[in-house]
Structures are given as C-alpha cells and as structure tokens.
Design a protein around this nucleic acid. Structure first.
Lengths: 145, 145
DNA sequence: AGAATAGATTATAAGAATTACAAATAAAGA
DNA sequence: TCTTTATTTGTAATTCTTATAATCTATTCT
C-alpha cells in the first residue's frame, strides 16, 4: 500500500520536468514508509547510512520540489522545525500541546468552507489546512497524577 | 470597538498575575488597531518611536505571555516569521499563495470537527486552526495579463 | 511612606532552522 | 555515446527566536 502511493508520487514527478534521483527516491520512500511526520533533519539522519555524502540542502531542496508538485505537505510550528507529510488520503492532524505527538484524523474534506471562502473573498481557493490541538490521553493521565 | 476588546484583553491579563506595563499596553494596542496580522518585527518597528529603548526580546516575551493568556494567536509559516492575531470573534484566515496577503473570513466555529476528533482520538481537544489558501483577486489578475 | 520581593525590561550573544551560492556531478534525450 | 540541463554538495550566510544576566519597576508588607 505504501509502495502504491509511492509509485503514484514518482509518476506525478515524472509528468513534470523533475528528474528522479536516488536521493529523491529515498526521501519519498522514507516519507511514505514513515507514519511519524518527520522533520527535514529526521529525513537527513535516516538516510545518512545509505547516502553518507548527502547534504542537508538536498533534503530541503527536494522537500520544496515535492511541495510544489503537490505530493508533500509542510506542517509549520513557529520556532521548531517543520514536519512533512505525504499527501495520501483526506486526513487532518490532531496535535498534542504537551508532547507534540501528531495523530492522523480522517474526516471528509471541508469543501463547503472552501466554496464559501471563494465567494466571500474573491480568492481562487486551492487548498486548506486544518489542525486540531489538545492534550493526548497519555499527557492527560500524567497531569492528573 | 477596538478599544472595547482591548479593555477586555487588559482585564483578562489583570485577572492572572500579569502586570500591565507601558510596553505591554502598546503592543496590545497595536495588535488591536492593526488589521494586518503583524509579525514580531512589525510590532517592534511600529513602537520604535514611542519606545526607543525597547528590546525585541520584550516583544517576543510579551507575545508569549499573551498567547499563554489566550488573548493572542500565533500563525506560523515555516521559514518566514510568525504573524500574530488578537483573538476577537470567530474567524479564520484566507491566505494568498502569491503575495502572502491575509484576509479574515468569518465562519461558524467547527465544533463538530472538534467533538468528533475528541471521540476518535481520545484527546482532550482545546482548539483548532483552519487556514484557507489560494490566489487573491489582484494576483489572479496579474497572472492573467 | 519605605523597604522587600517578585516580575519585567534591556542588551547582547547564542542557537537553530533554512537558504544562497558556485563548483562538481549525474540524469535524460538525441 | 554525447550534450544539455537539472541536481547535488559543501559551506557560508541569513533570519527568526530565545537564553542570560544585569538593571529597573511595580506591588506588597510593615
């Protein structure tokens, strides 16, 4: 299942003038296999063994390429590093305010909101971002002790 | 109307053990008068004349104090600076992918999403963030020329 | 009011994340 | 295979944000 969406991502890239390099493939592979919404540095470190000479710049460059191609999303968090998530199915993120854990949350896309925003603001809407914040069960338990 | 919500913010702060200083008042004042979701640096620069000796650290410190008190929200954007928005009524943001313009968009709160997320994930949900991305009318016009 | 206490500000320096740049390298099509 | 052009690399630089310690100011207690 991971390999299917990975193949899809690869073919999306091929359809533009983006070349497939071993580094790119490895980054995509890691993103698709990982359920943990890794940071750029996570990716860099995880590929250190296979690509001892790879530069951090390569990771950032390619994440931007993937973002522009629409196959990867960036989740930003003020001071701390961004996290990256491959676009697979419609899902949102529930994030713990205490420990930072990110849990996927499946919910139908908010098309209605996009449509209304389009009418009200005159923008050509392309996308939206929804995140839900709270305290995860583990941290709740901790704080009650 | 700006002064009413400003007064409210001030009294929220007073109810905790947060002291009201001239700098804090000025930062709050600017946030409430500004419709532009300023960055920390915008705030710093705008108060340069009135407070020639104010430190950038003071701006950041106090924005954090305000965030913790729940009267200010931070909007984060990966590489670029965070923007800050005073919490007034229920509204979301529509953001232009080209020029970065931020437009307020009034929409009823997504309570239903929060409730469902709570049930599905077991989190104690506190909050959510929704942003809608697209191209503003001006940038759309530009690109069609 | 005056002294003590706790909180706030300032200035600077450090830290971390991300990008810019130029040279070297490698992919894809002719 | 050869050529063109995208990509990688390594490093330096930039930018945003925070840590720290000294100074200052507001509040509390007597």
């Amino acid at each position: 299942m991971a390999s299917a969406s990975l193949q899809e991502a690869v073919s999306v890239l091929k359809s533009t003038n983006v070349r497939m390099t071993p580094q790119r493939h490895a980054i995509l592979e890691f993103l698709h296999s990982s359920m943990s919404h890794p940071t750029a540095d996570d990716i860099y470190k995880s590929l250190e063994e296979r690509f001892p000479n790879m530069s951090v710049a390569t990771v950032y460059n390619n994440l931007r390429v993937f973002k522009d191609a629409g196959i990867v999303k960036e989740l930003t968090y003020g001071d701390s590093s961004s996290r990256f998530d491959c676009v697979t199915s419609d899902h949102y993120h529930v994030i713990c305010n205490d420990c930072g854990k990110i849990v996927d949350f499946h919910y139908p896309g908010l098309d209605e909101v996009e449509t209304l925003a389009e009418h009200v603001t005159g923008f050509e809407i392309e996308d939206h971002r929804l995140e839900i914040y709270g305290t995860c069960p583990e941290c709740t338990k901790m704080s009650k002790q």
